[in-house]
Nucleic acid binder design. Structure first.
Lengths: 115, 115
DNA sequence: ACATCATATCACCCAATGCTGATATGATAA
DNA sequence: TTATCATATCAGCATTGGGTGATATGATGT
């Protein structure tokens, strides 16, 4: 159990820090969704989705409710969607600045962010 | 270069997803800060901080300006701080729910979130 | 009870990540 | 120009992380 607030925050963000998990989180943006539905929507493998869902649950981003033989996943908090929205807006603006940059052609580091 | 919006968002969040980087980002919350200052404030190794700063730069979260022999790092966008604030509030509420939970004593998965 | 569907878990592989210590670059001041 | 300070980069290591395929669990309907 992590009580260090910085570690908890890092864990929270870690939930968002992978493309597959982001895709899964997008699936939950409107309503609770089934694992199978997520598999279909994302095209990811079933065990893969299941693992990511465990991760998201552990990160505190999602919760699950069993109904019949389905398990519905949903956000633990409406503000989870706010993160996605905030990221959308920031990314849009960064991209805009990027395109507007005249010196765009100069070499960009493709393989950075190793940590 | 990643133009897939989901990948860009994941990259953005990856910047926040490590305790060391979060600590660094906290240092920048008020004003541009020097690498050496960050090293002192966080207690992290110099090369470690430098690597994380490269990562943060690549993730689009920070930018740097050279002044004399110092390099000042700062957020690329004021909204970077909003992420931290949003995380603070969500974590506070999640923690509250956690403490209020009567079944608190039951075993919690300590080593989850492997992905 | 049995077949089936939904989900989780396991074993394994490979790539990425975080860290450290040593070294290189680059600016400044004496 | 040489010494020093600030920062970046490199090599190497141990660990984590994401992915897959196979298997296990668990609920439902017949």
């Amino acid at each position: 159990m992590q009580f260090n607030p910085v570690a908890v925050k890092a864990k929270l963000f870690r939930g968002f820090s992978d493309t597959s998990r982001l895709a899964i989180l997008e699936c939950l943006r409107n309503a609770p969704v089934t694992v199978t539905e997520i598999v279909e929507l994302t095209g990811l493998g079933q065990s893969n989705v299941s693992n990511h869902l465990s991760c998201l649950k552990d990160c505190g981003l999602v919760q699950s409710v069993q109904k019949g033989r389905y398990i519905y996943y949903s956000y633990t908090d409406e503000r989870i969607g706010d993160f996605l929205q905030l990221a959308d807006s920031v990314v849009a603006d960064l991209a805009k600045g990027f395109y507007e940059c005249t010196r765009y052609a100069e070499e960009k580091n493709e393989e950075a962010c190793h940590s």
